[in-house]
Design a protein around this nucleic acid. Structure first.
Lengths: 340, 340
DNA sequence: TGTCAACACGAAACCGATTTCGTAACTTTT
DNA sequence: AAAAGTTACGAAATCGGTTTCGTGTTGACA
């Protein structure tokens, strides 16, 4: 990189001190307008830009927010990022994005790197491997160091910090209820393994809706997808059961279910209703398009970042973790029967 | 944030100088093993972590790469980010991600912020508004400041820097040729306005393939989609023409075409073949699934970041812009007739 | 016993800004 | 004319590290 122009250069060239330059550039009243003009003109001409690192070191803040996501090629997380970036920008922050790729080890490392003063705070959605391990010491470390932290979507109670979640139980209930209301009784659930708590919560909602209708949950109707294996094959198995509807906890599972249903000769939604989660492009462009729970990822991102920046800028405040619950909506499309 | 422990604290507590602490922590031979052990034990116990900002200021490098994308809720860009992050991590860099949201103004601002020393280099895909304006002074500024820059996918010749692109002409040709080879003659093209150069290049490939078969391009078969208006309506119009195939320059257009074709009663691929671009989830889960040009976003990201880091770490090298062309593959699926 | 090297450590400069405090040179007040 | 107040600027500390260049103390060797 080319030798950049600094305050020192300007000072030397113009025969003044660095303090004078600094003040002149901030239009301080301490400096005569004559000197100010001279300095400003010079700075302008040579396109002087204050060095951010120096400022960050001095101010002890970076105006950067670290974001760690399990993955990005996923409609929900993409929209969350958009929300975070948007909210951050509004308040003069930038975001530094990293991915854990669902790996515990990478999450620990990334957290370590980012917490070395590179960021003022962190927004994280926990990796599935970490949720499985149940080892959250790396997060607890952050808390004791008092580095502002906001968890979203995939959160755990053990970590004392602000959280933003969707009302997963309610959403699971809403989806299942919708199926029940339209005459479906034998509803399969395609979910994640139980350690991914959003999956577990959505399942709770599913079970709650069934119980209300005095339907016993049938374990054979429930598939816990292991993403390391072939997803489609695992989902296919539940179609051997006598089912008339599928509730999938994400888009991909729903799209797979749709495909399998069609292959098996079911008519959607006449013989088989399908509801997904995450209102992404797959659901929208599938045919028939898929009824789904819209998670409002953008809103979640904005809320998370607002929470975080408030925390960063009001350190003095007594620490009382907040939890924001974002409601989710059922987006009716063609894969379920119209409400009767 | 809690008062963090610094080298100064350690020095004071242990009654040594900061230089001694610094050296001890780097296991310098200048320090007696006795003192080293004492200092290291202390640092370890109090979980000392060197302040990144201080190091960055001193070393004049941040080990951070800025990435500016037009959007993220898009399979191609998501995969590119993954590639960039992956490649960056391998070489000890982090990425700072921003979005221009296709806006010229935001691109300029973001570029200004990031080039203040916050990053060692930049990877950018140009906003469509900027391409339309043809105002690239903000990029030229970077070049004269000698801040390493790599453009990918949406690039322009005016900017002298490294570039990574897909072989858009070739890909457009490949897609069109495939349609022609399978008996389609009246091929519609759903593309972007001409200022988005990837669209223009893919169109060139399309035209080239037609010319080879002595088919005159029919302007009525070509739709330049304005994303500010209703996408579907614009695409629908071309179906009024007598066409037997559609080549769309991205997933969304292809999915829309698929939907319209089905609505109009065409059988895909018997009556109507469809080829898309970007091998994303929509193409995969559409039914019938969509034949598409796979762009290898991950590879592009990795190549771009490798190019950038090489540039960052070998500033001495004479500057000769490199251009890497990533080949793209035709991924055959159900929306086109099997090769005869 | 004087000299020199090795050892172990500290002082101070440096990265690029900001900011407090001091002060010389005027101007105003009494 | 002395005291007080302005004006316009500079010196130096600071942020948290690294690194160069001393320097005092040993011990070995001639």
């Amino acid at each position: 990189m080319k030798q950049k122009i600094t305050i020192k250069t300007i000072a030397k060239e113009l025969g003044v001190s660095t303090s004078t330059v600094s003040k002149a550039l901030k239009d301080s009243h301490e400096i005569s307008s004559e000197t100010k003009e001279k300095i400003q003109a010079y700075a302008n001409h040579y396109n002087y830009k204050p060095n951010n690192l120096a400022l960050q070191l001095r101010n002890q803040k970076t105006k950067v927010i670290g974001v760690i996501l399990p993955k990005i090629v996923h409609h929900f997380f993409s929209t969350v990022i958009m929300g975070i970036e948007d909210g951050a920008n509004e308040r003069g922050y930038n975001i530094m994005v990293c991915f854990s790729n669902e790996s515990y080890k990478k999450e620990v490392e990334t957290l370590k790197v980012l917490s070395n003063g590179s960021v003022d705070g962190l927004i994280v959605s926990i990796a599935s491997e970490t949720l499985e391990n149940k080892d959250f010491n790396h997060f607890k470390g952050l808390v004791t160091e008092e580095i502002p932290l906001v968890l979203f979507d995939r959160v755990v109670d053990e970590i004392l910090c602000d959280k933003v979640v969707v009302d997963d139980v309610g959403a699971g209930y809403k989806a299942t209820k919708h199926l029940l209301d339209n005459g479906n009784k034998k509803i399969a659930l395609i979910t994640t393994p139980n350690h991914v708590n959003v999956g577990a919560l959505r399942r709770q909602g599913y079970e709650k809706a069934l119980i209300e209708e005095y339907i016993k949950t049938n374990e054979n109707f429930i598939v816990e997808v292991d993403e390391k294996k072939d997803i489609k094959k695992q989902i296919e198995k539940v179609f051997d059961e006598d089912i008339d509807a599928v509730f999938a906890v994400n888009e991909i599972y729903a799209a797979n279910a749709m495909r399998i249903a069609k292959e098996k000769g079911f008519k959607v939604p006449e013989d088989m209703s399908i509801i997904g989660f995450t209102d992404g492009l797959i659901s929208e462009y599938s045919s028939p398009s898929i009824t789904t729970i819209a998670q409002h990822g953008f809103t979640m991102g904005k809320q998370a970042v607002a929470l975080l920046i408030d925390r960063i800028e009001n350190e003095s405040e007594v620490f009382k973790p907040k939890k924001i619950v974002i409601s989710s909506d059922l987006k009716l499309r063609e894969s379920t029967k119209p409400s009767s």
